[in-house]
Each structure stands twice: as structure tokens, then as C-alpha cells.
């Protein structure tokens, strides 16, 4: 894997994933960035300290932070409060469209349908998971991305068991009201970055992480991916980004619990 690493910096896969997730919010400006999970949370805060300074984000509860604090700190950690975002204001942000969420996905399919609700038939699931949570509303109201820490054929499936987040085919079939503000921006995994920037919105390999082969991604994906001829490697973290991740945003290395170093 070392052949693809930046010549000056060693970094972990988790750190690469932070940067790949952060890139999903590039260009979003003054909207609420809602990360679900540790790596997406570090990613939003890193993006806000570097290339996307206008993002709004919370402490994970109801406080909008003016400046990032490290992940995993208690409520007594000093912070600069710039606003208040209780859950019902989150729904106001969702329904107004001024939000971009990155959720997890137990399953995701080629059109970006996502499942976090259950495995097996909904009426009597083999495995009950969280329930659909906010995924149905998120996906038809504002941009949604997904972070999948383990890229396997169990996660990237031909067809999801319970459509929680709405994909492109289902949004199209549901009509204009569902399509109007629907956008699945990015899927970031531990192997690659994927998007839907294809004529029929089928999932496309956008970049593979350094050291990962296209064959590896294909073998671990349960459906056919669109693979561009000029495929790039996911960009490496810069020295400044690594400093922010390690020293400022995640000094306890909680990122390694989501993606093993």
C-alpha cells in the first residue's frame, strides 16, 4: 500500500475516510451539515476548518457550534455557542432544504436506495435495526450522502430490504414532488468513493482509495458499478488536514473504532 502514499506523510485508512467524507460537503456553504457517526462528524468539523468555513454544525445535541470541538468530549468541554438546534428545528432545516446529511447504510443499492430499518421482510424481520429514522424525509428534501465503513456485498446489494432513504429510481417513480429536491451526493466506504453522476443515476465509482484495486471494489459490490475510464485515486490527506484530525478534532483516535487502522 505504501507505493500510493504521499511521500511525506503516513496516514491511516480512517484518516483517508475522514477526508473523503469531508469532500462530500465541499461547496455546500451556509447549510446545516449533519454527520451520523464519528468519522463523518470529524469530517464536517475538518471541512469547516479548511475548505468549507461557512457550514453549520452541532455538538451532536442541540447546540450549534461556532468553532469545532474535539469528538467524544463531555458537555463541560468549552465551546462557543452560535445557535440552538433542538430536534424540531432540525426538521425545519430538513424541510427547508438547508441541510446535507451523511447517514450510515446497512444496505445501499445501485440507485442509492438505503436501508437502516430491518433485514428480511418488514412484517417479520430477520433482524430489526433502527427503523427508518429520518431517512425518508431527508432524501426527498435535501442532499444526502452515506458512509459505509465496511464495503462488502452485504452492504452494497442488488436490492435493499426496506427502502429507508430513497434512491433515484424510486424518487423518479414517485413523481415530481419526490424528485424536486432529491440528491444522493456521495457514498464513501473504506474502499472507495462513489456517486451517481451518470445519465441514469446508476452508482459510479468516483475514486478508489490508495492501495485498493478496482477489482477489489467490484468483488465486494453486489451489483454492477459504472466504472469510468479515467479513474483516479481518492486524494490523500494534506499535512494540515492530518494535524487537524490528530491534534485538534480527534486526539483520542475514536476514528479507529469505525475504520480499523
Amino acid at each position: 500500500m505504501s507505493a500510493d502514499l504521499s511521500p511525506t506523510e503516513e496516514y491511516s485508512l480512517a484518516e483517508l475516510c475522514v477526508v473523503a467524507c469531508a469532500e462530500a460537503w465541499r461547496g455546500d456553504g451556509e447549510i446545516l451539515a449533519s454527520p451520523i457517526g464519528t468519522i463523518p462528524m470529524i469530517a464536517v468539523r475538518m471541512a469547516s476548518l479548511t475548505f468549507e468555513p461557512d457550514l453549520l454544525y452541532t455538538d451532536g445535541e442541540a447546540i450549534l457550534l461556532a468553532e469545532p470541538i474535539p469528538v467524544g468530549v463531555g458537555p463541560d468541554h468549552p465551546r462557543i455557542v452560535e445557535g440552538w438546534m433542538p430536534f424540531r428545528n432540525v426538521f425545519d432545516m430538513v424541510w427547508s432544504g438547508k441541510r446535507h446529511v451523511m447517514m450510515g447504510a446497512t444496505q445501499v443499492d445501485r440507485f442509492g436506495n438505503q436501508n437502516i430499518a430491518c433485514i428480511g421482510p418488514w412484517a417479520k424481520p430477520k433482524s430489526q435495526l433502527l427503523g427508518v429514522r429520518g431517512a425518508p424525509g431527508n432524501t426527498v428534501n435535501h442532499p444526502t450522502s452515506y458512509f459505509v465503513p465496511a464495503h462488502t456485498t452485504r452492504a452494497f446489494v442488488e436490492s435493499v430490504d426496506c427502502v429507508s432513504g430513497v434512491g433515484y429510481d424510486r424518487a423518479a417513480a414517485a413523481g415530481r414532488t419526490a424528485r424536486e429536491f432529491h440528491e444522493i451526493r456521495r457514498v464513501v466506504s473504506n474502499k472507495a468513493v462513489l456517486d451517481f453522476e451518470t445519465p441514469d443515476h446508476r452508482m459510479r465509482l468516483r475514486s478508489v482509495h490508495p492501495g485498493v484495486t478496482v477489482d477489489d471494489v467490484v468483488a465486494n459490490t453486489g451489483f454492477e458499478l459504472v466504472i469510468p475510464a479515467d479513474l483516479a485515486a481518492t486524494r490523500s490527506p494534506t499535512a494540515e488536514e492530518l494535524r487537524l484530525i490528530r491534534d485538534v478534532l480527534d486526539p483520542k483516535s475514536l476514528r479507529d473504532n469505525e475504520v480499523k487502522p
Partner: peptide, 11 residues
């Protein structure tokens, strides 16, 4: 809008 296109309307 929430619900459109999702399994919520199916189940």
C-alpha cells in the same frame, strides 16, 4: 414530502 418513494408508504 417525507415518505414519498420510501417503504413507509408500502408498509
Amino acid at each position: 414530502r417525507a415518505g414519498l418513494g420510501s417503504a413507509i408508504l408500502d408498509v
